[in-house]
Design a protein around this nucleic acid. Structure first.
Lengths: 206, 206, 206, 206
DNA sequence: TATGAATGAGCATTCATTCAT
DNA sequence: TATGAATGAATGCTCATTCAT
């Protein structure tokens, strides 16, 4: 009823607050500085309270990762569906991947932070299907469409992995090296996509 | 003289031992596990002694970064000088970059570990000129040669940054996600270089 | 009526469940590991519920002690009533004391655990009369009968206390030092009783 | 030299202070209340300092046990050597055992505290030889001498174990139940020794 | 140059208990 | 009767760092 519902909402809300605070701290100060005490102070509850919502610190990290991957997929899946050509649909997806990384750098980085992967097995997250069975499959389709249309002989998996790596390179450097004198951000991204996709479809003849 | 010299050598040597031990621990166990105590135990000196060579932990990290970047430049500069064409010389340099990252993942990662950049400002390292004024300049030349030869209208800096990002993407994913079902490593790298360089020189007509 | 009765039965039953769970944990894992949480999990109720039946942890311990002493008396009182001589009746009672300790080591130990006596004053238990006024009186009678019959000049109280201590020594060492290379258990017990009772009735002439 | 010596003495002294404080707390308040922080407060050093002298809490307990057993053996070994008969020499040793327990109840109890034995394996202590290879052997000799002299047919091991248990019973009850209305302490002890030794040598004829 | 002693701050986690419902 | 939410206090332990020598 009303009461139960409200309570559940409250409970869920505090749970989310904990995750939010944890993500903030994690990205702002790194894994080493992510402490239960710190989280507690941020949400203005006692450290003990956190244990009512998460079994331990690792469980918080795990949920942070899952959440980030799910959000990523959600954003990318929705991109470019109405573009007129396979190439443009692929480009839109890649651009969405990059934009997601840049607009939600906290969530993006979480899944790539070396330290985290030491504590939260990526394997256990991939098993959840978030990434492997969803994003990968989705991107695979778009890549495949392009290869077919352009008559390009490359294999889907290689191309997918290369494109992913290129985009990841762009995102991670922009995020990770904010001090570097980058050229204008949008120009950098578009140049990257130009080069990658152009290089993909125009197979070298030599 | 002899004595002073020996002392200097010893001093330099212990200093280097500290850096070596630190790098080992850092890469093997992560920033969170890099402790002064741990370093001390490894080099078989007291923790206090480390403070005679480095002001604090951050200074060790700083030198680790500088050292890694210098080593990187050394390796890349030597690559592909005898290749017959600008494009092949650029390709050789990029391949050297990737190979360096994969063959010395510890040194490579150090400069890209999110955690480290929180403690050691990249800016302070770039100011030293190691990277910006050397590798960047060097790669800039090779990129420029290719652009001129191919009559491509792109600007050097954008292209350099994009190529760097693409290579970094490849290296960092291969290193950071060893569990991922990658296609055969060499094929992945060559495909990436193919796509990037092919996309670079064959400007889109449309 | 029926409802009240059932409720009472339930109440009594949960109360007993709490005591049972507590005893189990206490003996299996020690005082340090006896936690309200632990008890709650065992009985599958919330920790809070325990407070409806016991004021606090100490009260649980207190009841555990009382219960153990009552059970002990019950067992010993029933022993050896049909033996033909005072000496054999006393021996049977002592043997029952030892057997009780060994067959219900959990209950036995509870009343002798150093840690517990720090939390539950023995005095408060003895005042209840359980032990002092029952077991002590009972054993006093049996001892007295032996002293009279054998014409031994010792005073009852001293002898009772000595015999009690001897038996306690046997039980507590067998329980507390299970790793020790004891001689065969029954032989040890009988030898102890032999020595104690033999030494009791055969007064030294010198 | 002087300095090194003084430093060593200081170091040893703080180490001993830690053990003393730990023993005090352990006996006064029990294992559950023995905390590193508590020890630190008592010796007026920071908790961290304790870790410079002992690896962890268990190591403190271990040393407490070893120390107690060594002290016990030292005291008992010195007892009754000049008594004129085997029986009196045995009696003196048993009396020394009891007296040790009563005059240094803290040290005595440590080795018999149930909780401790859960944390510090008795086996590891016995291997040290303190008890098994020293006290046991020593008492075995004295018991043997009595058996030979009195022509008693019992086996040494059984008798040793029974006498040990009887003495332990006396000590542990006197220590553990200070509230109990014991008869005069010395009378109790002598009565116990009378009974045990009298019962030992005067074999039952029946 | 090198170190042993010492410490304050911090960590994750557990516990007994209270309170409102 | 029963509980979920919450907490303050406590625990063992590790760390970077300082200081006197």
């Amino acid at each position: 009823m009303g009461i139960v519902e409200r309570k559940e909402r409250q409970k869920e809300s505090l749970r989310q607050e904990i995750l939010d605070a944890s993500r903030d701290i994690l990205l702002a100060r790194g894994y080493a500085q992510l402490s239960m005490r710190g989280i507690a102070k941020r949400i203005e509850y006692s450290p003990t309270t956190i244990y009512l919502y998460f079994k331990n610190k690792d469980e918080i990290l795990y949920h942070l990762c899952v959440e980030a991957l799910e959000r990523q997929f959600e954003v990318i899946r929705g991109a470019g569906g109405d573009e007129p050509s396979p190439l443009l649909r692929l480009r839109a997806a890649l651009r969405a991947y990059i934009d997601f990384g840049l607009s939600e750098p906290d969530r993006y980085q979480i899944t790539y932070m070396a330290d985290i992967s030491r504590y939260v097995s990526m394997a256990s997250i991939l098993e959840q299907g978030s990434f492997a069975n969803k994003l990968r499959e989705f991107m695979g389709h778009r890549v495949n469409d392009v290869l077919i249309e352009s008559g390009c002989a490359r294999d889907v998996e290689s191309v997918f992995q290369v494109l992913w790596a290129h985009c990841h390179g762009i995102v991670s450097l922009l995020i990770g090296r904010p001090d570097f004198p980058w050229v204008e951000r949008d120009k950098l991204i578009e140049t990257s996509l130009d080069i990658s996709l152009n290089g993909l479809v125009r197979q070298r003849t030599a």
